[in-house]
């Protein structure tokens, strides 16, 4: 499974996905650059399942989110095929005001903790997550810190 084969398979199965849409932004050697796939949100879990079974990407590296202010949130995940050295970086824009996304937990067990952290930091509700609660902050914390609308030095009496 080379990078080109993987790209071809993705292209024929997910026609609405943008594969390597932006100009290559990393200076890594071409062979080890990840395939950046920008998807619509409803194909999130389906693409992950496809990558795991067909492309052989069984290693779940991480999943996170980015807050693009007016354009809304974007979820990012990276999965790798360790044997062939092919990496896939999945991205999906949620759109302004939307904070719901299908969960990757049915496909990869490692997504459990990563998605809990995304919920904690961004407030994204993952549908299908077995146990969505706060991970790093206490359960009664108000607000989601990594959103751009949250100030870094928010006071929290009596400790700060």
């Amino acid at each position: 499974m080379t990078r080109e084969q993987a790209k071809a398979l993705i292209g024929e199965r997910f026609s609405s996905a943008q594969v390597d849409g932006d100009a290559p932004t990393s200076a890594e050697a071409t062979a080890s650059r990840p395939i950046v796939v920008t998807l619509p949100v409803d194909q999130w879990t389906a693409f992950a399942q496809f990558a795991k079974t067909t492309l052989g990407c069984r290693f779940f590296s991480f999943s996170s989110a980015v807050d693009w202010k007016e354009q809304g949130l974007e979820v990012v995940a990276r999965i790798d095929n360790l044997d062939d050295g092919v990496g896939v970086m999945m991205k999906a824009r949620l759109g302004p005001g939307v904070s719901a996304c299908p969960s990757l937990v049915p496909v990869f067990r490692g997504a459990e903790w990563m998605e809990r952290e995304c919920y904690d930091m961004f407030g994204i509700q993952f549908e299908g997550h077995p146990d969505l609660r706060r991970m790093l902050l206490s359960d009664d914390w108000q607000g989601h810190p990594l959103l751009k609308s949250y100030a870094v030095d928010t006071p929290h009496p009596p400790y700060r």
Binding site: R58, F59, F60, F62, F108, R109, G110
Partner: peptide, 9 residues
Amino acid sequence: RELAEDVGI
């Protein structure tokens, strides 16, 4: 091995 890759360790 399968758990290792699935969880991402």
